[in-house]
Write a protein that binds this DNA or RNA. Structure first.
Lengths: 240, 240
DNA sequence: CGTTCTTTTGACTTCAATCAATGAGAGTGG
DNA sequence: CCACTCTCATTGATTGAAGTCAAAAGAACG
């Protein structure tokens, strides 16, 4: 049977040991499901949160703006992620979460979440771990944005998305949907749209990756992950 | 009376509500104090940790290396920080912690930490919050490295260090020690040494900031924080 | 089909990296 | 106390990667 929070269960299982009783507790959480169109905000910078959200289907992006209007996309969140779990302890959020594609989310009240965590300290550890894995991704991205070439950054992003989608069972082949525009990629990787476009062309002509109209296909995983210096250790997946 | 973990108490108090009983519990933690010279590693990438460390005095830096040897400094950790608290749940670390200046650290066994947290769930929340504040800093830095000019990044770094040192009571004036080299600054901000040098010169000639031989002096806080687009909200300090 | 958004291309510019050398200062040892 | 060696800071010259500008060509959508 397909339930909304199945994706969350899969995600948590991918990063740690999920006991059956935890699974039961999670399934009993009261949720409110809602639908977002591309561009809609799930969470806005400065908001004081009383709930957090789980991505059920689609893709959210976390971003921040500079004064001059330029935008840095900080992370992408496919199904299973709880992108604003931090708000449980940092109630005033300092980023915006927007739908990159039409997206379904489930919101969970902090009070319900906290009641569950009080009852299951082991789940607290698992959720804590989830926020830490998130932070580990930020560290890796900081290094990439600071030090890596445009090609390496682009390659790395696709490697990471592939690995994350695979680890939660959303995909099982090297061809997968990744519904972002080149402008999104540019803002995520800290480069101009024009440069993102040319970088994608280079990867394509090198026979490593094809990305067109929201569909990615990794043609040569060994060389792509080599180029992107991709070592999945930072994702801290359970099965390694 | 001056005890090693006083700095940790001050740090925790700066980010949340620290009950007297928590303070007592922390003071009872068994610690092992050790001394590092500049360049010594406290934690090395790939290590499986059984303990974590508190900076008692001095400065640690977290960094990661690319294959070509280039280094990205991801964060600086002055007295009071627990830079590897994550290792409690992500035992294999994916970064290196090195002393930027001669530094004293106290190590705490995970088992002791966990015993304390089991006894005081409220402390768990506070430590969790600490790791979340860390992550919020990474987000802000990602945006800066990705989008901001060299001058803005440099300005922001000094604003942040000033604010953090002030919030834990280490300093109380605009002149403070920050024992890093220009090469460290360059690696932290994702720029070349030469460019870091020139950026510092620009800030100096603009009358905003003087940095020489490990000593920083902020000459014009309003203009420096304006230039660095520094909004301390992301530090999630308790008193705001 | 016209409108809008996204991708692609070419020309030009600029910021910042690299290269190369020099200074300045701290510490060491003869 | 003076060479000697380090590391760190500074400067100038040159190069190159990536940004900006501008426009055209596709796609997507009502």
């Amino acid at each position: 049977m397909q339930e909304p929070l199945d994706v969350l269960i899969a995600k948590l299982a991918s990063i740690g040991r999920l006991l059956p009783e935890y699974e039961t507790a999670i399934r009993q959480l009261p949720i409110r499901v809602s639908q977002l169109d591309r561009g809609d905000d799930a969470v806005m910078e400065g908001q004081i949160m009383g709930h957090c959200c789980v991505v059920i289907e689609g893709l959210l992006q976390r971003h921040k703006h500079m004064q001059d209007g330029s935008r840095q996309i900080l992370s992408f969140h496919p199904a299973g992620d709880i992108p604003d779990l931090q708000s449980l302890h940092l109630r005033k959020v300092d980023y915006t979460l927007s739908a990159t594609t039409p997206t379904t989310i489930a919101t969970i009240r902090h009070s319900d979440m906290q009641a569950m965590l009080r009852k299951h300290p082991g789940l607290t550890d698992l959720f804590w771990r989830d926020t830490l894995v998130d932070a580990a991704k930020f560290l890796t991205w900081m290094m990439l944005i600071g030090q890596a070439s445009a090609e390496a950054r682009m390659a790395h992003l696709f490697c990471e998305m592939f690995m994350r989608l695979k680890s939660v069972g959303t995909i099982d082949s090297f061809e997968f949907p990744f519904k972002v525009t080149q402008s999104d990629l540019a803002d995520a990787l800290g480069m101009s749209i024009v440069h993102a476009n040319r970088t994608l062309q280079e990867l394509r002509s090198a026979g490593l990756l094809i990305f067109a109209s929201g569909q990615a296909e990794i043609l040569d995983w060994p060389r792509l992950s080599e180029l992107g210096q991709f070592d999945p250790a930072y994702l801290h997946l359970a099965d390694e």
